[in-house]
Design a protein around this nucleic acid. Structure first.
Lengths: 333, 333
DNA sequence: ATGAAAGCGCTAACAA
DNA sequence: TTGTTAGCGCTTTCAT
């Protein structure tokens, strides 16, 4: 569009300077350029600019699903920081698919995004695509779900402790046969939660029963099935800690269908503190994660890398909070 | 990175050709280039390519909030079509802010996205930013929420009919004093629903009571307040049609707090058929919108414009479906 | 079959 | 104060 501005009969670089309010430019020409630019509603071509700068002011954000409350919140947190820095976000969802995740990384890398903020998909077992980024020195920050074999900055919650607290709470409420419904085995945060769960059982001198531990995909339906199996055990559990509220709700449905009462017969606790938790009956006890802050922090760490051009590997662990509602307190109390 | 490929001592253009499998290139050099490219893991710079082509293969998608089920679904639908065409998505949320919406349009325009798919924010009262796009002949498709004064392609549902059906259903269930809690006045789909609501009342020879119509912002809290006001009327309604499930849930909370029973004392119907609807007590009757198809259709219309380079203005109206659950059927029946 | 050169839109160093 | 030039990474005529 700069050609158009040459209607004024002046050189292209003068126009460029005028547009950028460069000091070395005649006030008269400056206003003339500005006026014409407005009339022609000139828009600088960022593509050209980015090519020139060899990088764009875009941050790629890859999450499993944007519809999960945690990710929607985290994205808003990332947005806040990124916008303040004048960066824009590429948001995309891997749909828990490793292939999509890898394809996005490749694609965004091709347009030279300034950095990546990623919560890894539950089906990601390789890390070549992450290593690729690091080899090229492209800033990368994991949040919520990291990938253990990749030494990158990350902001996560203390999953071990959070699960521990939840089990502790159940114990204090009188539940003794506590089951855990976790995610796929390769999801590290599910593992951490499982370890916290086991630790808490041990510390309370409770047996760790292999039948009480389930590993399923992230779907309400699977949680329902897993719970059904738990209830059919000769010694069914009297409490269930689930990896997410989605899974917890699946468990609740199965429990209701079996005719049992929540929380008197069986307690349920989930993770994520989804808004739905307080709307369902009984209201679901859940572990609240500071999702917005997680996003903010991840973005800050990323900019730290972008601006300092050094790849410091920091790990920020945030605290989660147990929000006690009705599914985990016996009404007889 | 092409410089690197010149380690082979051949010209830059030969490399370009080799990479593109051009016929006029020696098989030997071709493989040599390909091998080195792999070893150096060369990634073509899309920025440069886009600059050359004068447009990128990106579609900008602007929605009020990605956390609403409707938009999350629609985005997945858009994704399906866009990916098949080899395009990527810029997803961003206006947070119902006109300023953000306009800023995004400007920003994405600057990087020459191929087109826009937009669901307008509830605070958008101007349309200069949309007109700007049209003036530059940039493909634009509205979905779900369109802007009446802008002649652009759009895919929406028949909001009038959907609301009409809902009121009709309430009438058949015996409810006679039906209120409507709508969104802000400038949200056209809220207006259409209100018109359908009024039409249905008239057709059933029911009075249209001005006190029974509320216009609020999209928040559960506001719906709660509005409902409280409705219940305090000397002749409170015995049914509420809400603009969204979010508002319907706010209404339900207010009703429960007032000690009234749903659906015996008062019925509630929402829009969007959010997953939460069947989890709450009582399960919420809602109008299901074909969100995924809406996204697919919008993307198809956009590509129609992109590929044919003509701005046909089409309007696609999809049908919504009333999903009857417990909040709208008297239990005495 | 391959190389040289121009150009996409823009900025910045260098001249004038 | 303004103009000229080169170059960001790539493709594509036009020569060779």
């Amino acid at each position: 569009l700069k050609d158009l501005a040459e209607q004024l009969g002046i050189s292209i670089s003068t126009v460029s300077r005028a547009l950028k309010d460069h000091p070395d430019v005649n006030q008269a020409t400056k206003t003339a350029v500005l006026n014409l630019a407005r009339d022609l509603d000139y828009e600088p071509n960022l593509l050209a600019l980015n090519l020139l700068n060899k990088h764009s002011n875009y941050i790629a954000v890859i999450v499993p699903r944007i519809s999960y409350h945690l990710y929607a919140e985290a994205i808003s947190g990332i947005e806040e920081i990124a916008e303040a820095k004048g960066y824009n976000l590429f948001i995309c969802q891997s749909n828990e698919s490793f292939e999509r995740e890898a394809a996005f990384i490749k694609e965004f890398n091709a347009i030279r995004v300034a950095g990546f903020i990623i919560s890894v998909s539950s089906n990601t077992n390789e890390f070549g695509h992450f290593k690729q980024l690091q080899k090229k020195n492209i800033p990368l920050v994991f949040f919520n779900r990291a990938f253990g074999d990749v030494a990158a900055s990350q902001v996560i919650i203390d999953n071990h402790k959070a699960a521990y607290h939840a089990v502790d709470h159940l114990y204090n409420e009188g539940y003794r046969n506590i089951a855990y419904i976790g995610g796929p085995l390769n999801v590290q945060i599910s593992q951490s939660r499982e370890e916290g769960y086991i630790q808490a059982l041990s510390d309370h001198n409770l047996n760790v029963n292999g039948h009480y531990i389930k590993h399923i995909d992230f779907s309400q339906k699977e949680a329902e099935n897993a719970t059904k199996q738990l209830l059919e055990l000769s010694a069914p559990p009297d409490a269930i800690l689930a990896f997410s509220d989605q899974l917890a709700i699946g468990a609740m449905l199965a429990i209701k269908k079996s005719g049992r009462k929540i929380p008197d017969d069986i307690a349920v606790i989930g993770f994520n503190n989804e808004p739905v938790d307080e709307l369902i009956e009984p209201a679901l006890t859940s572990i609240d994660q500071p999702a917005y802050d997680m996003g903010r922090k991840a973005a800050q760490m990323l900019f730290n890398q972008i601006e300092n051009e050094i790849s410091v590997v920091e790990t920020k662990v945030l605290e989660a909070t147990l929000i006690v509602r009705d599914t985990s307190q016996k009404s007889s109390k």
